[in-house]
């Protein structure tokens, strides 16, 4: 009798499950903005639109490069509708490979020319910077590095300095940017000398931050969000913007793009529209992921220690073109061929 009751209950449950359910609207988004910052924005989008955002987040070791390669590998059966990238080089690369589709979300209309692709394949929202981070207990004020090339100074031991492997994410972007701004020879020379000095090469900018915070490294190259995060947590570190007396530092705008062949066209447009709104950008600035708005007059977050930042002169397209040559050189220099 007990078995009969259980079977009957199970049958009812199965039949209940077979009933018609309303069709769920979904959008698939590949996200290289840190999960801890991106998720509240996506949840806000879900609440506002009723569309479920199915996300794939990157991991520290592969960053945007891993997601962009995944989009490329899925070109015959695209899974993603939107690529929400925390940087720009991989987005431009996908555009060059014909893997992005033009779109014009309503909120993109207010963006300045520099923050949008001329063909409408991508739009920028929020920006970070490449910065130096120094441990203030290990280095006195006058000892701290001020420029990228200060890592070659004799006062530092190579293993006391840390950089992320310049094959992925913003570390790769920085290499490409230096190739574009300085010319390949000078930029390659810098990285070769870093390698020759046995500077620590680790698998992510957050690892660089952690090493400097712990004092295992005295200084490192990282992103402004990682560095400002450490400052906010009270770590004994200083964020230093290099090149402020001359060439400037790399600004890294986040980008939003529609993936070609994505199945949820309307939902993708709605998500892009939401992500490009000033309110969404502000959410990410407030949470500490971005340090500047692409809409502003150049004002930046106070954690960077100045009101205005001198940006590197090289344009985004120019930097993007240098990605592959610089990547090949970096692979050869750091033995990852």
């Amino acid at each position: 009798m007990l078995h009969f009751r259980f079977s009957f209950a199970a049958l009812i449950l199965v039949l209940a499950g077979c009933g018609k359910r309303p069709v769920e609207r979904i959008v698939t988004v590949y996200v290289s903005v840190d999960q801890v910052h991106a998720e509240p924005v996506l949840r806000a989008f879900e609440r506002a639109s009723g569309i479920r955002a199915k996300a794939v987040f990157d991991v520290e070791a592969a960053k945007a490069t891993g997601l962009a390669n995944r989009i490329a590998a899925e070109r015959s059966r695209p899974q993603a509708d939107v690529f929400w990238n925390s940087e720009f080089v991989q987005t431009l690369r996908l555009k060059q490979e014909g893997l992005l589709e033009p779109a014009l979300p309503a909120s993109a209309r207010g963006l300045p020319e520099t923050a949008r692709d001329k063909d409408g394949c991508w739009y920028a929202s929020g920006a970070r910077f490449r910065v130096l981070i120094a441990n203030t207990k290990k280095l006195a004020e006058q000892e701290r590095p001020r420029e990228w090339a200060d890592f070659l100074a004799g006062r530092f031991r190579g293993p006391d300095l840390a950089i992320a492997l310049p094959l992925f994410g913003t570390s790769a972007d920085q290499a490409a940017a230096l190739y574009a701004a300085w010319g390949p020879e000078r930029a390659r020379g810098l990285y070769q000398k870093l390698k020759d000095r046995s500077v620590r090469v680790v698998d992510g900018n957050s690892v660089v931050r952690d090493l400097v915070v712990q004092g295992a490294a005295v200084a490192g190259w990282t992103d402004s969000d990682d560095a400002c995060g450490a400052v906010a947590e009270g770590a004994a570190v200083q964020v230093i913007l290099p090149g402020q007396e001359g060439e400037g530092t790399l600004e890294i705008p986040g980008t939003v793009a529609r993936v070609k062949g994505g199945r949820h066209v309307e939902e993708a447009r709605a998500l892009m529209d939401f992500l490009l709104r000033p309110e969404s950008e502000k959410m990410l600035i407030d949470s500490g992921f971005y340090q500047a708005s692409v809409r502003s007059d150049g004002a930046v977050h106070p954690c960077l220690g100045r009101r205005q930042v001198v940006r590197l002169k090289a344009g985004l397209e120019e930097i993007s073109k240098q990605l592959e040559p610089s990547r090949q050189d970096m692979a050869a220099i750091f033995g990852r061929s």
Partner: peptide, 18 residues
């Protein structure tokens, strides 16, 4: 897969973010 992250993946990512 999209929308099907695991707890271990999230914890690993969060550990990296500190």
């Amino acid at each position: 897969p999209p929308g099907s992250g695991t707890l271990s993946l999230r914890i690993y990512n969060y550990l990296h973010y500190g």
